[in-house]
Amino acid sequence: MIHKGRTLGWVLLVCWFTWIQAGSGWLGARVLPPAWVPHLGVLLFLAVAARLDVRLMARRNERAGYAGLVLAAAASEIALTVQAPAPVLAGWIGLLGWQNLWRRGLDVERPLLRILVSGTGAAGLLVWRRLVLDLDLAASAASTDAGFLHADAGAWRGVLLTAALAPLVMPLALALPGIGLYWRKR
């Protein structure tokens, strides 16, 4: 029974990730200028990763752990984006590694650190994806020397908004129904 509950927890986590990613896409397509859309998926991901109790899961012989979290975040984005799976997957792994670096000596759930980690993490993701896109553009022989920038030229605004929303959204994300089965309580 407990095992079924944990499975349901992962399923719900994937659902929440998907809805948040779909919502981000919808916001960028219809509600906000694309550059202003906060990366809500990053906030859910970092919130859960900060609480993921890997030692507890190891004791229970649960194998999902960080890999499950990365796969959940990547799969939900891959389902809805035009990006290839490889850069998406690499981006989420890199983001997890980034937070875990901070987690070694600091409590990343403090508001200021949440702002810092989520802001730099979202910026890193943005830079990474821009790099991949630019290489793709170079391969298709497009030049950007006409004085025009790509549509994500102002996406730093979305990064700032992601960081600003972190202290508010991350605790809410942890309270989403059904996804608290693996996270250690503070």
């Binding site: 960028g28 984006t81 035009v82 994806r129």
Partner: peptide, 15 residues
């Protein structure tokens, strides 16, 4: 369409 917008900043994709 399966998606309603691309979640990645600056991309205009559709699944």
């Amino acid at each position: 369409p399966l998606s309603v917008g691309d979640p990645s900043a600056g991309r205009r994709g559709l699944v």
